[in-house]
């Protein structure tokens, strides 16, 4: 399963901000650490502000901070802001869908989607930070803020 670029940016931003609860962090700092485009990241941060997960403080010393509850917000909550997991209810019919084979394929893919959802909804931001702390980064892409 691959996540869209915007979703990955959002997850990185939330994890970075939640890991520094009292700090104001600029989008440039986050973009640099994760080697991602500052422009794309700014758009994603605007969406997260609209959703009430992130707060932006303007001016000198300003930046972004996480204002959600890290013990309650799950990876799935964030991902669903940017993309569907599995086949959306609005899914349009595709050729072959009506056949027994098409239905069987749907059933098997549905199993995978259900497991993905259960996994992503069981991991809160707080737990994800614990997992990150136990997981070493690779090579030079590890920066401290």
């Amino acid at each position: 399963m691959n996540l869209k670029m915007a979703t990955r940016h959002a997850l990185f931003a939330i994890l970075e901000l939640a890991d520094h609860p009292r700090a104001q962090i600029s989008s440039a700092q986050i973009a640099e650490k994760y080697a991602i485009s500052p422009n794309h990241l700014s758009k994603v941060l605007r969406t997260l502000v609209c959703k009430g997960l992130v707060e932006a403080i303007r001016g000198a010393g300003g930046g972004y901070s996480f204002v959600g509850n890290a013990k309650r917000v799950t990876l799935l909550d964030i991902i669903l802001i940017f993309e569907e997991i599995g086949t959306p209810p609005s899914h349009k019919q595709e050729p072959g869908d009506d056949t027994a084979e098409g239905q069987a394929l749907r059933m098997v893919m549905g199993e995978i989607d259900a497991i993905s959802r259960a996994t992503l909804s069981s991991i809160t931001i707080d737990t994800m930070l614990k997992i990150s702390r136990r997981t070493p980064g690779i090579g030079s892409a590890v920066h401290a803020l």
Binding site: A114, I115, A118, T119, S121, S122, I123, T124, T127, K130
Partner: peptide, 18 residues
């Protein structure tokens, strides 16, 4: 159970993985 989100979150918080 796949939908037992609370217990699953609890075990995840203890560091359990699939």
């Amino acid at each position: 159970a796949r939908d037992a989100q609370l217990v699953m979150q609890f075990f995840r918080s203890q560091g359990m993985m699939a």
